[in-house]
Design a protein around this nucleic acid. Sequence first.
DNA 1: GCCATGACGGAGC
DNA 2: TGCTCCGCCATGG
Length: 103
Amino acid sequence: MNKNYHNIYEIVKKIPYGKVATYGQIAALAGIGRNARMVGYALFSLPDDLEIPWHRVINRKGEISYSPARNQHDNLQRKLLELEGIVFDMNGRIDLKNFLWNE
DNA sequence: GCCATGACGGAGC
DNA sequence: TGCTCCGCCATGG
């Protein structure tokens, strides 16, 4: 467990209600810019118990990305986001223009 | 220690 | 926007 990983969690927790952030954005803010993949790794190994809004973290396309292992929870993340007022288009994507978190 | 894999991102087409 | 290729690098076999 690195300090950077800790930063990732801290940053994800800072994402405001009704907003989303991309992996690259999180990585940049955590000081590990190029390691967007590590952000995904970190979140993947994250227990659901903690109060970390992992569902507000998406890929650059504005779509929810998830591991095959989490496949059964695909609608969970989407549902959580919809509850926050985030709208999905017919392709299941989020309008980053309106919902992307600007620090 | 090498090799394959991966919640990704960006450049090029 | 989509697809492909490449770069980055932690993690596991």
